[in-house]
């Protein structure tokens, strides 16, 4: 029996497709779901689970066939994209609508760097003007220092 080995990319797409079935047609509330198992595919009915398993195969099959057929990842993605839309990709495509998403973090980082530069510039300890003590102050200073030394 030849094992079915999936690439991580296609597996991601399959995962997403499987997850979609939970959204599709689920009419009841999710009140049974608690803040719990991350991504544990839990179902409210046998019917849902059956559909989930059905879909696992439904999507693996054409993707598997396409992979065996020599189609590139890009071609497979295009195929799925035409039929299911952007929603199916975990990694959003780079388009005008997602420019903010993809370049936002970089912009934040640059902003951060600019802020640090600004802070550093202003934080340099000022060059102190030499403090000149007058006679009296110098006397007091000497007395103090002597006192300290003796202790």
């Amino acid at each position: 029996m030849r094992p079915l080995v999936l690439t991580s990319r296609t597996l991601q797409m399959v995962m997403l497709a499987l997850w979609l079935t939970l959204g599709a047609g689920v009419t009841g509330s999710l009140s049974h779901r608690a803040e719990a198992a991350i991504d544990a595919f839990e179902f409210e009915s046998d019917e849902q689970e059956r559909r989930f398993r059905q879909m696992s195969n439904d999507f693996r099959c054409p993707i598997y066939l396409m992979i065996m057929d020599g189609k590139t990842d890009y071609e497979i993605e295009q195929f799925m994209l035409e039929r299911y839309g952007d929603f199916i990709f975990y990694r959003p495509r780079l388009m005008t609508e997602t420019l903010l998403l993809w370049f936002g973090p970089l912009a934040f980082l640059l902003l951060g760097g600019w802020i640090i530069a600004g802070i550093i510039r202003r934080a340099r300890p000022q060059v102190q003007e030499k403090v000149v003590l007058n006679e009296e102050e110098q006397e007091r200073l000497r007395t103090l220092l002597d006192g300290v030394k003796r202790e």
């Binding site: 975990y90 609508e97 993809w102």
Partner: peptide, 21 residues
């Protein structure tokens, strides 16, 4: 939050932002 923003702004279109991002 991006998927939600995108949905609001594009009038219903959906995208997903997942682990690769």
């Amino acid at each position: 939050l991006y998927p939600m923003v995108y949905q609001a702004v594009s009038g219903g279109e959906l995208i997903s932002v997942g682990p690769p991002y």
